[in-house]
Design a protein around this nucleic acid. Structure first.
Lengths: 201, 201
DNA sequence: ATTTGGTTTAACCAAATGGTTAACTTTGTA
DNA sequence: TACAAAGTTAACCATTTGGTTAAACCAAAT
């Protein structure tokens, strides 16, 4: 089960430390200790700290984007797409609770590179923007522009992951299982919330 | 106009650098350069890097919380409170775009201290939780628990500030003025969005 | 048994970093 | 004017940090 290769051990440990301390706060020695290996191994498998960070970060991110793109490309009605996005995104994060914090750090550390990466992955916001405009024009949803819808959706999805250490404490008596339950509920709550707000009935 | 005291110059510079680089990524020398003063002055006015960071961070945060508490304590109808929260929170952030990133970093760096600080400031989530439950019970709003409403609201408000460097690039051709306009719009967009989703008509 | 290749280790290094110190200048004021 | 306090500076220091290196280990192939 757990005869992980050294490289895999490093990636796992690096994920945990990078999330807890950030790229700058993380120490190579610390990652080595967490992985239970010699520090030199980090440089053996990854050239530099920077490369290790990028490999961990973009490795996780690149596994999310294709799924999202596929949903947008599909022919389902708009409200089904919304639901699919929420579920896909949220499910992925429940497996990688790390992700949003990584993204936020990268957004501030090197937004240019991140933006470039997204384009490389084929994520085209202009396309999605037109799609939303069409839905509005056809009277399917209440007037809203894509940037607003985008911020609303991503904000609601991502918030409980970003804020977990605080929210769990202050809203759930630090009960970890209750928080996991809460996270699960959010998929339907968000979907309903958005539908209620947008769909013309 | 700009004969700021050295201490004030330090705080201003520290804000900018801390946001850009984070607590760990920021260099004392860098802050000194940004402030146009000698590095030793940092230690003259603030004992350590850690103290400087905390003073900057909690200084900003402590100016936001009382306003929010007052809104909750008022007797206005629920939907007015929502609107007031959105406006108050958002207006404060447009003056301190720094804040959400600070909070997120602190949430992961030292959630215990942050939670303690909020209680010290008199922010009591249980109270608000009861208020929301009452509104639901009275049939004023569709069923939702406070943790869900909270995450939805804060997420929507905060997202465009957290994501600005990326969003501005990918959604607004890196046009800073358009993004400011977008931020302004969000106040009414969010309020309408939430009312539409929650209010029983 | 020996070689070979990848893997792992301990010791080491130069650079960077937070922090200190001691001397100097400016400001307030009696 | 004199003098103490506050403010400012450049040089310095101990420690930490990312990264390197040379030697050792070890399993599979010869």
């Amino acid at each position: 089960m757990s005869s992980d290769s050294t490289k895999e051990k490093i990636v796992q440990a690096a994920q945990r430390i990078f999330v807890r301390k950030g790229m700058d706060g993380a120490r190579m020695q610390e990652i080595a200790d967490e992985a239970g290996i010699n520090k030199a191994m980090l440089h053996y498998y990854f050239h530099s700290k920077d490369q290790l960070f990028r490999e961990v970060f973009y490795g996780i991110l690149s596994r999310l984007i294709p799924g999202l793109i596929n949903i947008f490309k599909g022919n389902e009605p708009f409200e089904d797409k919304i639901e699919a996005i929420v579920y896909e995104y949220d499910a992925y994060m429940s497996k990688n609770p790390i992700l949003p914090q990584f993204v936020i750090r990268e957004i501030n550390r090197d937004p240019e590179q991140l933006a470039g990466f997204m384009t490389d992955q084929g994520l085209d916001f202009l396309q999605i923007e037109e799609m939303v405009d069409q839905e509005v024009k056809n009277g399917k949803i209440r007037p809203i522009t894509f940037p607003h819808l985008f911020a609303n959706l991503i904000g609601m999805i991502v918030m409980p992951y970003i804020g977990r250490p605080l929210f769990q404490r202050k809203l759930f008596n630090n009960d970890s299982e209750k928080y996991d339950q809460y996270l699960l509920e959010r998929r339907t709550v968000i979907t309903q919330f958005v539908k209620q707000a947008l769909l013309v009935k």
